[in-house]
């Protein structure tokens, strides 16, 4: 499919593309070298997609492209044209958290939170294709998502728990907040 283009007076071409993000269709005008992470963040204001390196090393910018986790800092916006993208903003539906999010929350798998959106998406992609992974499979699935805070201990625990439907950890039950909301 040929994109419509506009050329500015310096001769720089811009392409009209369609991004399907979290079920919404956006028409945006981008340069050929525009990076998906930047278009999501700067044009669509979806800043839940983080940037930690812009080199494809850290995984903070993970989004799902047709269900598969990709580093959106390594994807051209043009490549995503017409394809389905899920960002962290699209994971919770009508403010109902996804199981992975719920478990990450309850198992205190979040510290600074900067890696969290990417982690959630990588884990969600794993559980979609493999609902009952082993621990090594979980570790492998999130090995492209670097976390500097947690040592991954609670993250792995949370993803395993999400896969087993144990969204509330045992030690958490004793907490006041849980007793209250139950």
């Amino acid at each position: 499919m040929l994109n419509q283009t506009i050329t500015d007076n310096e001769g720089v071409k811009r392409y009209l593309i369609t991004l399907n993000v979290n079920g919404d269709t956006h028409t945006v005008l981008v340069k050929g070298n525009a990076i998906l992470a930047n278009v999501l963040r700067d044009e669509l204001n979806l800043t839940g997609t983080k940037k930690g390196c812009e080199l494809g090393d850290c995984g903070s910018c993970t989004v799902l492209l047709e269900g598969k986790p990709v580093d959106s800092c390594m994807v051209l916006a043009m490549e995503a044209d017409g394809r389905e993208i899920t960002t962290i903003e699209g994971v919770a539906v009508n403010s109902k958290l996804d199981a992975v999010q719920e478990a990450m929350l309850n198992y205190t798998a979040v510290q600074c939170g900067y890696c969290t959106p990417g982690m959630v998406l990588s884990a969600k992609a794993l559980l979609t294709r493999n609902p009952h992974p082993t621990e090594p499979e979980v570790r492998e699935a999130i090995s492209g998502n670097l976390c500097r805070c947690t040592g991954y201990v609670h993250i792995v625990e949370a993803v395993m728990a999400a896969s087993e439907g144990r969204l509330v950890p045992e030690d958490y039950k004793s907490s006041k907040a849980e007793g209250e909301s139950a």
């Binding site: 839940g48 958290l97 205190t108 939170g113 907040a177």
Partner: peptide, 22 residues
């Protein structure tokens, strides 16, 4: 003495949390 959930957890797991670069 209890493992209550983080007060900033919901914003962080949903991507709503705004860091300076956001």
């Amino acid at each position: 003495g209890h493992s209550v959930p983080r007060i900033d957890g919901p914003e962080k797991v949903t991507g709503a949390a705004k860091y300076t670069l956001d």
